[in-house]
């Protein structure tokens, strides 16, 4: 375990990632976007509202927390594919992968190091955004447990989308194609499953009330935004549960399915990183 945590690839990745000016710019614009939205939200509800003397109330603070969380989730979904879909194919393109693969480092350690270093950078952004959330706490309305749960959902999302990015980076030679595919899948997990959930709900509504359908449950289970909403509003979970007739917690379903996706993607990446050394021994008598 120690060798997995302190290992050369991870060391190098973190060193190179945090050394580059690009990473600094990334954090800067991330906080700039998030901070702009937070300040804009407060301004809209106080200075620019009908009631200019209005104070910022706890219910509004809660709404602001939700807005911030959604934006943060969107930013994570936007950045994770870009950070991970080039980690292997990028090394292949710049012709450093061959050398790395002739070292005795295990494929597992290479793949996991790549994932951990990408996630470390995303975590840095998340931690850097915490002071913005303190605005929310200043006005109240949100429990620290909810904040913790939200950050937990971010982490699971990063893990799954990051693993998908690494999988395509390993399987596909060109970074650009791997990136496009990863973004495509991310889009499906957000917009795609949202549309399918709506269609599913309409379908249930049209039929008689005793009918249930598993479709809205399945599709919303894969949608990080719906899950985020469900973690704020219990009503969402209850409605989907009753429509589908599945009592199992939607959020737990999401966590388990995303962890499973991560595991499968990482497993395939590890298996496919190096060529499968399986050659038939040629028999002496003939070809």
């Amino acid at each position: 375990m120690k060798s997995l945590l302190i290992n050369p690839v991870l060391n190098k990745e973190i060193k190179l990632r945090f050394r580059s000016f690009k990473s600094f710019l990334g954090v800067f614009f991330y906080l700039f976007a998030l901070g702009g939205i937070a300040i804009g939200f407060i301004l809209m509800n106080t200075v620019f509202s009908y009631n200019a003397s209005a104070i910022f109330r706890p219910e509004q603070s809660r709404t602001m927390f939700m807005v911030l969380s959604f934006v943060q989730m969107a930013l994570i979904l936007f950045m994770t594919p870009g950070l991970t879909s080039g980690v292997i194919s990028g090394e292949r393109e710049r012709q450093t992968l061959n050398i790395l693969l002739t070292t005795p480092q295990s494929s597992t350690s290479i793949i996991l190091s790549k994932l951990i270093s990408s996630i470390a950078y995303l975590l840095l952004m998340m931690v850097a955004s915490l002071p913005l959330y303190s605005i929310v706490f200043l006005f109240g309305g949100v429990s620290p447990a909810l904040l913790g749960a939200t950050f937990g959902l971010y982490f699971i999302t990063m893990l799954a989308i990051g693993s998908i990015g690494i999988l395509f980076s390993t399987l596909i030679r060109k970074t650009i194609i791997a990136t496009i595919i990863t973004y495509g899948i991310t889009l499906f997990f957000t917009a795609g499953t949202a549309i399918l959930t709506m269609i599913g709900m309409q379908f249930v509504n049209f039929q008689n009330l005793n009918q249930t359908s598993v479709m809205p449950y399945i599709t919303s289970m894969f949608n990080p935004f719906i899950i985020l909403l469900a973690s704020f509003e219990e009503g969402v979970t209850n409605e989907i549960n009753s429509m589908s007739g599945i009592e199992f917690s939607l959020i737990t379903g999401f966590v388990l399915s995303f962890l499973l996706i991560s595991f499968i993607c990482l497993f395939i990446s590890i298996k496919k990183l190096r060529p499968k050394m399986k050659a038939k021994k040629e028999l002496p008598e003939g070809e």
């Binding site: 061959n98 693969l101 190096r274 060529p275 499968k276 050394m277 050659a279 021994k281």
Partner: peptide, 14 residues
């Protein structure tokens, strides 16, 4: 060389 360096699997032989 790639085969000897374990980067490529041969079709046959050792």
């Amino acid at each position: 060389f790639s085969i000897l360096a374990t980067l490529l699997a041969p079709t046959s032989g050792a």
